[in-house]
Amino acid sequence: MADVPENAPQHCPGTGSSDAGKSSACEGCPNQTLCAAAAGPDPAIEEIKEKMSSVKHKILVLSGKGGVGKSTFSAHLAHGLAEDEGKQIALLDVDICGPSIPRIMGLEGEQVHQSGSGWSPVYVEDNLAVMSVGFLLGSPDDAVIWRGPKKSGMIKQFLRDVDWGDVDYLIVDTPPGTSDEHLSVVQYLSAAHIDGAVIITTPQEVSLQDVRKEINFCRKVKLPIIGVVENMSGFICPKCKNESQIFPPTTGGAKKMCSDLKIPLLGRVPLDPNIGKSCDAGKSFFTEIPDSPATLSYRTIIQKIQEFCSLRQS
């Protein structure tokens, strides 16, 4: 009876027992109503597991700080994986208060449709489906002023009620931090098994500090880490071709952190003004700037993520 709290009254049946809150020992216990009301884990977890049985790989994209390039990375991971026409890719944006994915994917103003089997995601290409709270808003000025429980409810709906169909890769783009959205995604997908998380950072210590917290979060919730991507790593002047460190890696950057914490560094992506431009225009920079060093670096990273996932499959 491991679920009997230390300070419980004598003969407590345990919080997980079917008698919880009902036995005579529960009379007068301050937790009685709570125990009687809770009926085990959220049934949605099982429903989501069922739903996710048609999704082969699930990848979470995380970061400590905001504005380091999570959504850009998630979007282009999706674009990159979707280049293989035989694969079905799904991109889910769980940044409820700051949904940037619709713009980056060139889907602003699109709406979600309801069908018999749930919400239909919006398709960029035949094999690339996208879902975001942005598709549910009436105007680009609409703010989603929600506290945690409502955000979690939305995430639950995204995972349970969206008609994803057969999917090879589900990429989940998250807001920065380690709070409601992250806990909810991990919790709801706990039975469905997540392949792992990719953590995005910029080279400076101020950003790495928060990444270490993010790594500790992954370890706490037992989420495997696929690796770290160092974004905005160096800037090459388009005129004189000299490199500058706009965000200086004063403590050795992601490379040193990864070797200290023994996690893989998937790669470094240089700052390229064309990346921001293609995101604003809602286009993939794989097709816009195919020869840029940033594009090549992205391709290697995507390759590594695919390898990681295929290893987990076998």
């Binding site: 504005g67 959504s71 850009t72 208060c97 700051g98 940037s100 713009r103 980056i104 680009p140 000025d141 609409d142 703010a143 989603v144 002023i145 921001g276 431009k277 995101c279 604003d280």
Partner: peptide, 21 residues
Amino acid sequence: TTPQAVSVGDVRRELTFCKKM
């Protein structure tokens, strides 16, 4: 905000938040 449209898009929502609050 930062200058690019992706960032400005979120800040528009932030301004709505201020108005509502």
